[in-house]
């Protein structure tokens, strides 16, 4: 049986791109997670680059990014690769390494544009300006009162973007709220 993946916000209107400010739904892009005492070593053994401290994101290879959420929790995200409908592992991947679900639990929104920090400032208490939140930084916080993970990295065109990961149950709300916040700038 073929299973088609569908983003929970696929039916919502997209934001017109103006002045370089845009909001993209990347929920169908591939991502996976691991956690556990040996999770970092497990990723290094796979040839991946792992951030040295939590709340950072680093490029690993051509298209992948590795994000450290704690000393023992990592997400591997790939904006260029489409996710599969395969169920993630539910048992230990290796000794002291367990799957950490993020593909089917979180939506992935990408906010791009020079004024991305100004848009985020309307919703989030953390200072996301580049001086305080440089490329490679990750914030686990709240935006518009819902929990989000915000990662500051570059896209395939080497443009800086915010990747926002939010629980799928509230992704429609955050999508519309971000669009509303962007309205001041576009």
């Amino acid at each position: 049986m073929t299973v088609m993946l569908t983003s929970p916000i696929h039916s919502l209107p997209s934001t017109p791109i103006h002045g370089g400010l845009s909001l993209e739904d990347a929920s169908l892009a591939a991502r996976r997670g691991v956690r556990g005492r040996h999770a970092a070593d497990h990723l290094r053994d796979q040839g991946l680059t792992v951030p040295p401290v939590p709340n950072q994101i680093v490029a690993s290879g051509d298209d992948q990014w590795v994000m450290a959420l704690s000393r023992r929790e990592f997400w591997i995200i790939n904006p260029q690769q489409l996710a599969t409908a395969a169920m993630p592992d539910s048992t230990a991947i290796a000794s002291e390494v367990w799957p950490l679900y993020c593909q089917h639990s979180h939506s992935w929104l990408i906010l791009q544009g020079a004024q991305r920090a100004d848009v985020a400032a309307k919703l989030c208490a953390v200072d996301l300006r580049s001086e305080a939140f440089p490329l490679g930084a990750v914030a686990q916080t709240q935006a518009a009162r819902v929990s989000v993970i915000i990662a500051h990295h570059t896209n395939s065109q080497q443009q800086p973007v915010f990747s926002l990961f939010v629980d799928q149950a509230v992704s429609e709300y955050l999508w519309l709220t971000l669009q509303d916040a962007m309205g001041e700038f576009i």
Binding site: P54, S70, A125, Q140, T141, Q142, R145
Partner: peptide, 16 residues
Amino acid sequence: MKILHCPLNGPRNISE
């Protein structure tokens, strides 16, 4: 808003 310093994430609003 009160601010609490999280050892992992730094200062955050108490509502978090």
